[in-house]
Nucleic acid binder design. Structure first.
Lengths: 139, 139
DNA sequence: TGCTAATTAGCAATAGTTGCAAATTAGCAA
DNA sequence: TTGCTAATTTGCAACTATTGCTAATTAGCA
């Protein structure tokens, strides 16, 4: 995702308005690698801007995703997560603490068992234990 | 997933009862590669056994999943899908017709960018166009 | 400064799934 | 075969995540 400053310009160019709510969300998402849900973002945003609506958070996330500024991902936690890292990467989810990490793979794995399927996207979700949680479970 | 006959035995051994509803679902799921949702299974089951409850379908799917007889998968279609194929495989989803296909990869892709994460499971979801739909969209 | 289309907030509505309790029933034992 | 009891089924309410709708507000241009 681009910087809040760049997004401000990009939104105006696209005919979208730059409201205080959106600027706040730009800031909260920039360089955010926590893969937040709409709700968790709403909670943080609410402390900085009491009264902001969850609906507005959803709306802005949808707008950003449509502009290609962020990726929406599903890792089986029940709710959608948003990732401002739009480089070609995948995710590792800790079964213990639920944290979602960005991971990279050397090359896209090749398919077998399906002759004619033209792949446009491949997403990998790894599950297991993150560093902190494996240490904690050593005994 | 094992055969309806084997599951009948396995359920009794596990202290679970084998009801007509469950037997029907065993049959509907056996060798079923359509990756059905709870609701689509319910629809088929309802024709063969009017009055069967959606709640029962969910319950039985949960039981089967807990026994390791089927896999529940999420491919972004909004609802959970169930796969009686429990071999090590992945899925390809057609963006046009929504069909979910089983696919196999030569080897699990290696991680980069995360030092200490012990992977217990990796799931790949490919998106694109299936054979039938690529042909249909040629013009 | 005023205008207007975009946005916000709040609430209702929806989809998928699970919780709960009363009625039913599978499967064991006598 | 009959009776018992725990498991199951059903129906419905509740719940979570998300989207639809609309009146009131506001960004940004002229």
């Amino acid at each position: 995702m681009r910087s809040p400053e760049d997004l401000t310009v990009a939104f105006r160019v696209a005919g979208l308005k730059v409201t205080p709510q959106r600027q706040l969300l730009f800031r909260l998402l920039h360089n955010n690698s926590s893969h937040p849900t709409a709700d968790s973002l709403f909670n943080v945003a609410s402390e900085l801007m009491p009264g902001i609506s969850l609906r507005t958070v959803y709306q802005t996330l949808t707008d950003l995703a449509e502009m290609g500024e962020l990726q929406s991902i599903e890792v089986g936690s029940g709710s959608m997560r948003f990732d401002p890292n739009i480089s070609d990467h995948h995710h590792a989810v800790c079964d213990n603490c639920g944290a979602v990490h960005d991971v990279y793979v050397n090359r896209a794995p090749e398919l077998r068992g399906l002759d004619d399927f033209s792949v446009s996207d491949a997403r990998i979700v790894y599950r297991g234990l993150c560093g902190a949680c494996s240490v904690a479970s050593d005994s």
